[in-house]
């Protein structure tokens, strides 16, 4: 579904963030991308999203080269506080992005409420983002992305700015939502445990400039559990393997 072919991106001033990176993602897969900080993970996502034109190589979505933001794509940013609009209610934040999906405001609002209910925030619809905790704000961002009905969902360190407990809840929320909707996910993280826990496949990048160091299929059952899965020998093995790769220079 998504093919990244020899992607290279250098910023003006000479810093090369991503260098000759190739990767293929199948439809319905959840691929986690892990690597040391500053390895170009965000740049990779911005190039896939069409927010940035790569300086070399190509990104293909269903065989078409991405030149602008594709219609069937949504993204969840790390800084939830900055990606939600603080002057709109939670419901309207979700409804706003559905402008191209539904004709009437009534339909948009109904769809927004439905999406908020999916992430357990039906009661908070009338509140403004500033009144919610960080974890709840990120739930809103996820609801917004899913309501948009994307084929491809990009997540840039989505759970990087919340506390550990909230993080686990959000991870399970993502897995549950994904089991219900046929969406392809590329999730970038610097947390090794998270990359193994969430992924069908873990892609490990090298330090800057980012390149694919290894691709590890995750042989864990689809139904995962914060405590049991983390005790599974396969999880322990993969975590050690990914950890070794990430630290390798």
């Amino acid at each position: 579904m998504l093919t990244i072919d020899a992607l290279t991106h250098s910023y003006p001033g000479g810093h090369t963030a991503v260098d000759d990176l190739s990767l293929a993602v199948e439809a319905g897969e959840l691929v986690t991308v892990v690597g040391p900080s500053g390895c170009g993970k965000s740049t990779l996502l911005r190039c896939i999203a069409g927010l940035q034109r790569p300086t070399g190589g190509r990104v293909l979505l269903n065989g078409d080269e991405i030149r602008d933001v594709p219609d069937s794509l949504a993204m969840v940013f790390q800084s939830y506080g900055r990606s939600l609009l603080p002057w709109l209610s939670v419901r309207d934040n979700v409804a706003l992005v559905l402008r191209h999906r539904y004709g009437s405001r009534r339909e948009r609002r109904a769809a927004a409420l439905e999406a908020l209910a999916e992430v357990g925030l039906a009661d908070a619809a009338a509140k403004h983002p500033g009144q919610l905790s960080g974890g709840m704000q990120q739930r809103v961002a996820i609801a917004r992305a899913l309501a948009y009905g994307p084929k491809l969902l990009l997540m840039d360190e989505p759970f990087g700015s919340v506390d550990a407990q909230t993080r686990e809840d959000l991870e399970d929320l993502l897995l549950a939502l994904r089991a219900r909707t046929p969406v392809t996910v590329v999730l970038v993280t610097h947390d090794i445990d998270e990359s193994v826990y969430l992924g069908d496949r873990v892609v490990v990048l090298t330090g800057a400039p980012g390149r694919v160091l290894a691709e590890l299929p995750v042989g864990l059952p689809a139904d995962r559990d914060q405590i049991k899965t983390r005790q599974d020998p396969e999880f322990v093995r993969l975590r050690a393997e990914v950890g070794r790769l990430v630290r390798e220079k």
Binding site: V69, M75, S83, R99
Partner: peptide
């Protein structure tokens, strides 16, 4: 103006 807000709307096709 926050770049992330602008990028977010861009991703959603605005």
């Amino acid at each position: 103006v926050d770049r992330v807000q602008l990028d977010t709307l861009k991703v959603f096709g605005f």
